[in-house]
């Protein structure tokens, strides 16, 4: 797009030497300036990031490569290197893959609905059609202040056949049954996060300069047309961002189903991948649980990364 790109992007190593002044106008020397300050800025976060992100990831991978061996039935248990043994167990573990399938189905339905609603509300708030914007913005956002656990407890009561204020409905439709409980949870997640996503999209809409609408309006485009052809393309990055966070969130589902276990026996201890990790580690079988964690993190990473690349390529066209 814009012609001169950042010098770091081309020919690493040579760039700094050839064009010492291109990188930073003020720096005449090629050595890094303000080394101490940079260190002081980066080190606190860097150290904690290494300790609580990188080390655990490494440790999980290490643990997942171990197996427990016993000498005889009652012998001493020792951890020995087992190669990919745990991963073979992961791939043979039916309930785990069922739980992955379950959250994928959940995501395929819930994420588009949630983001569709968020986009609709954001566009309505940005249009001249709605009055009382401040009130609606706040009312829709309030559920985000409710922690997932609390929201799940609340909706658990709302779904329950005898305690619900909507017992006329819940006596006839059992939202906590094996068939429906996944979608009952989807509703809880949607309820909490629509307003949050709406706000991210809405702030992107506010950042669009008004002149961009003028041309379209002079051409006689209505609100719907402006939304579709002008606004949505411009706020695509915000929508992609919310989609990625939603995908990550979906694969990590834990609090809501864990709470629902006390409302519904249909939610098993392997209902979602993270519940599987938790119940496996409570057995305790840490090595297998670590392998589950690694596979789940990898799957999340790959899925969100692919989605990011895919949407970026589409936008580039």
């Amino acid at each position: 797009m814009s012609a001169p790109t950042v010098p770091i992007a081309d020919a690493p190593g040579t760039a700094a030497r050839k064009r010492p002044s291109a990188a930073k106008p003020s720096g005449a020397k090629s050595r890094v300036q303000h080394k101490g300050a940079i260190l002081a800025f980066v080190l606190p976060f860097g150290a904690l990031f290494a300790l609580f992100y990188l080390v655990p990831i490494g440790y999980a991978i290490y643990q997942s490569l171990l197996v427990i061996e016993r000498e005889g039935t009652f012998g001493q248990a020792t951890q020995v290197f087992g190669g990919l043994t745990q991963y073979i167990l992961v791939f043979q573990n039916g309930p785990f893959w069922q739980s992955i399938g379950r959250v994928l189905a959940f995501g395929l339905v819930q994420v588009p609905i949630m983001l569709g609603l968020a986009l609709l509300f954001a566009l309505l708030l940005d249009s001249p059609l709605v009055r009382g914007k401040k009130f609606f913005r706040l009312a829709f956002f309030v559920p985000y202040a409710v922690p997932g656990v609390i929201a799940a407890i609340m909706w658990g009561y709302l779904y329950s056949p005898n305690l619900s204020p909507f017992s006329a409905v819940t006596e006839n439709i059992n939202f906590l049954s094996a068939d429906l409980v996944l979608w009952a949870i989807a509703n809880v997640v949607t309820w909490v996060f629509v307003g949050y996503n709406m706000l991210i999209i809405y702030s992107a809409l506010l950042a669009i300069p008004a002149e961009l609408y003028e041309a379209a309006r002079l051409d006689g485009a209505g609100q719907l047309r402006i939304a579709w052809s002008v606004k949505i393309p411009l706020i695509m990055p915000a929508i992609v961002l919310t989609a990625i966070f939603s995908i990550i969130g979906t694969l990590q589902l834990l609090a809501e189903p864990q709470v629902f276990r006390s409302f519904s026996s249909a939610v098993t201890s392997t209902f979602t991948p993270n519940l599987t990790v938790y119940s496996t580690s409570s057995i305790p079988n840490f090595n297998l649980a670590a392998a589950f964690s690694v596979v789940l993190a990898l799957a999340t990473f790959i899925l969100s990364f692919t989605f990011l690349k895919f949407t970026q390529r589409k936008e580039g066209k």
Binding site: Y53, P56, Q63, L254, F286, A289, A290, A297
Partner: peptide, 17 residues
């Protein structure tokens, strides 16, 4: 990359450490 790594995936290894 850390943004894309779910915090829940870290909970178990953190517990072990």
């Amino acid at each position: 990359g850390g943004v894309l790594v779910p915090a829940t995936a870290l909970a178990l290894p953190l517990f072990l450490i």
